[in-house]
Amino acid sequence: MLDLNAVTGLFEQEALSLLKQDGYNKLPSIETRNFLAIAWNSIQAPIFLLLIGSGVIFPKDKWRCGVLPLVFWVFSLRI
């Protein structure tokens, strides 16, 4: 059985030394994406197709129910 009291992490000096030696635990980003690339990837997502489909099947008098989720999607795009 694992004794959690015996488990210790790094000391602060070790952590600072490793941080200085290896840097932050972060993968480098090779490409930067612009707004159109992000929008195109989002449009290809199945959830977007479901959103469009649900907007299409709503009755004409309740068009706001289908348009509002689309508006929220547009505002949720992040660069």
Score class of each variant (00 low, 15 high):
Phe58Cys: 04
Asp22Cys: 09
Met1Cys: 14
Ala15Leu: 12
Ser42Lys: 07
Thr32Pro: 00
Trp63Arg: 06
Gln44Cys: 08
Trp63Pro: 00
Ile43Glu: 03
Asp22Leu: 12
Leu36Asp: 12
Glu31Gln: 13
Val56Cys: 09
Glu31Ala: 15
Lys60Asn: 05
Gly23Ile: 04
Phe35Cys: 04
Phe75Ala: 08
Val56Phe: 11
Arg33Pro: 00
Gln44His: 11
Ala6Tyr: 02
Ser54Arg: 10
Leu18Gln: 09
Phe75Gln: 12
Gly66Asn: 03
Lys26Tyr: 14
Ala37Lys: 05
Arg64Lys: 15
Leu49Glu: 13
Leu50Glu: 10
Val56Glu: 06
Phe35Ala: 09
Trp73Ser: 01
Gly23Ser: 06
Gly9Glu: 02
Gly23Val: 07
Leu50Thr: 14
Ile38Gln: 13
Ser42Asp: 12
Ala39Ile: 05
Val67Gln: 05
Gln21Asn: 07
Val74His: 06
Phe35Asn: 09
Leu68Ser: 12
Leu70Ser: 02
Lys62Leu: 12
Gln44Phe: 03
Ile79Gln: 09
Ser54Thr: 13
Glu14Tyr: 03
Cys65Asp: 11
Pro46Ile: 01
Tyr24Ile: 08
Lys62Trp: 03
Ser42Tyr: 01
Pro46Trp: 00
Val71Arg: 08
Lys20Asn: 14
Ile38Met: 14
Lys62Tyr: 07
Ser42Thr: 05
Leu36Gln: 11
Lys60Trp: 08
Ile47Leu: 07
Trp40Met: 07
Gly9Phe: 06
Ile38Cys: 14
Leu70Thr: 04
Asn5Tyr: 06
Asn25Cys: 07
Ile47Val: 11
Asp22Tyr: 13
Lys62Ile: 00
Leu49Ser: 08
Gly55Phe: 01
Gln13Tyr: 03
Phe58Asp: 01
Gly66Pro: 00
Trp73Lys: 00
Lys60Val: 13
Gln44Arg: 13
Asp61Asn: 14
Asn25Thr: 14
Ser54Asp: 13
Leu2Val: 14
Phe72Asn: 09
Glu14Thr: 11
